[in-house]
Design a protein around this nucleic acid. Sequence first.
DNA 1: ATCATATATTAGTAATATCTTATATGTCAA
DNA 2: TTGACATATAAGATATTACTAATATATGAT
Lengths: 118, 118
Amino acid sequence: MYSWPVRLSKPNADVFRAIADPTRRALLDLLSDKEHPALKLAEQFELTQPAISQHLKVLKQAGLVRERRVGRQRIYEIEAAPLMAVRDWVSHYEEFWETKLGALGRHLRKKDVKRRKN
Amino acid sequence: MYSWPVRLSKPNADVFRAIADPTRRALLDLLSDKEHPALKLAEQFELTQPAISQHLKVLKQAGLVRERRVGRQRIYEIEAAPLMAVRDWVSHYEEFWETKLGALGRHLRKKDVKRRKN
DNA sequence: ATCATATATTAGTAATATCTTATATGTCAA
DNA sequence: TTGACATATAAGATATTACTAATATATGAT
């Protein structure tokens, strides 16, 4: 039974929202290769440094990056663990595309085949 | 080299944005069990029928649901294929949590170990 | 101390998202 | 045909997001 006050959740704590933005996904892609100081990341984009700084903040609040200070630099590292939640959620849907059986196969695999009226 | 005019992309055609909203994920969860007419879906939430109708529209534009008309009902079915893009993207990060080796292991597995200055 | 560098934060703006209420549309049933 | 039902669409309010320009903060170099 799904029901909750949707707008009350802290938006940025949410991994799904964090990865909804293509710039932030690109940042993670860059960081998955190796750690980077903030400016090196910003240089990869046609956005200003503050824009990237703000995106990094969202990623940090979602637990997707770690930050450490080295001199005046802030080195960002990926922290991929929260993506497990995404993987887990998506993995429930794998049966829908991985089987050659399609809808019939899924139906047959269900235990509960009794009729319910809509 | 990541750079694009972020705000120019049609927002709702994007699967990542579609699943960023918890209500829409819940709709997909409901539909992964079986198809449902729109009103049955709306009843599961503390939201109005138009709100759910709008969420279903976003899902449809992202290619995540199919709709068919049966009498005055609109039956919604899941169309999970676009989620493959999400799975594929996330799967690149599995090495970060699946290995017990952690960062060292990742490092050792890389071919390119040469030094680059940041 | 002063200046440059690397970065974050603030303030303001425009676009987008997410609701609600009211209304329109299409279908079935009497 | 008329009315009820199932749903979508429109209009409007408000919140959130994603940016920019300006400024603040901290560190390192001279």
